[in-house]
């Protein structure tokens, strides 16, 4: 079963945290032509659920995340986050995001980078929370380091701490470990699993790494491209917390193999565009 936050009475527990309904997204090209990135896509994510979108590059999975983040507008259909439009959540500073590029401010220390959301929202910086977040992502002692002085993995940790700074309603992660080497990536996956266990924030992760998706998510959504559609939704029943031992579990491997097979040879979807 997907893990659910059970302590707080959520305002609208029956309503999904993120809802994308009948989404069509076209990108205009030159001379009036357009390319269809997403075609009638539906996706709902429950409160406290961790959903991974898995797919080959160019299948439109990042576009799904950018729609939820309010960085793109759908051509058709509606996007609701916490029952409101993403733009409203942005204005209320309720979204957290991390990209493949860490997008840290190179002139600011790790501490000031994590404090950025407070400043942008015009709130007083909660120094204790900033330091606690840096400790949570394993960067105690590196508070005053500049991004340039940190390794690639450490930079992504800072970016994730920044995304968590204002206790967002929704965490959006777009290939956050995509630029890391395989060893660091695996370690970061286990770290993220631990951090998520402590925070239990509704999370949407976009990735092309099958291991990463299965290790972290309650549900894996497999997408195909051109135009982007949902090919398959896979419930991952393994209980949290998932540590390194999970990756040696035969059940884990069976699941990874099945999903990998789908990516290699997607079932032909009737083209109706």
């Amino acid at each position: 079963m997907p893990a659910r936050s059970n302590d707080l009475a959520l305002p609208t527990d029956t309503e999904p945290a993120i809802a994308l309904r009948g989404i069509v997204k076209d990108f205009p090209l030159k001379r009036g032509a357009a390319v269809r990135a997403l075609d009638r896509l539906d996706l709902e994510i429950a409160h406290g659920e961790f959903v991974a979108i898995l797919g080959p590059s160019g299948c439109g999975k990042s576009t799904v995340l950018r729609l939820a983040a309010g960085l793109e507008q759908p051509t058709e259909g509606e996007v609701l986050v916490e029952g409101r439009s993403p733009a409203e959540l942005i204005r209320a500073h309720r979204l957290g995001v991390a990209f493949q590029e860490h997008a840290l401010l190179p002139w600011a220390t790790a501490r000031n980078n994590v404090a950025l959301p407070f400043r942008v929202a015009g709130r007083e910086v909660d120094r204790e929370r900033v330091d606690a977040l840096l400790e949570l992502v394993g960067l105690a002692g590196f508070e005053d380091a500049r991004p340039r002085q940190l390794s690639g993995g450490m930079r992504q940790r800072v970016a994730i701490a920044r995304a968590l700074a204002l206790e967002p309603d929704v965490l959006l992660l777009d290939e956050p470990f995509g630029a890391l080497d395989a060893v660091t990536r695996r370690r970061m996956n286990l770290e993220l699993a631990r951090i998520w266990m402590e925070q239990r924030i509704t999370t949407l992760l976009v990735t092309h790494d099958v291991d990463e998706a299965v290790l972290l998510a309650d549900r894996v959504v497999v997408m195909t491209g051109r135009p982007g559609r949902v090919l398959h939704v896979q419930q991952v029943e393994m209980p949290h917390p998932r540590g390194g031992e999970v990756t040696r579990d035969p059940e884990f491997h069976a699941l990874v193999d099945r999903l990998t097979g789908m990516l290699d040879d997607p079932e032909p979807v009737a083209a109706t565009s």
Partner: peptide
């Protein structure tokens, strides 16, 4: 062309 790249490169949503 990658849709994701296209998506990322079009920062300003057009009307």
């Amino acid at each position: 062309m990658s849709i994701d790249a296209l998506s990322a490169s079009r920062r300003v949503p057009v009307a």
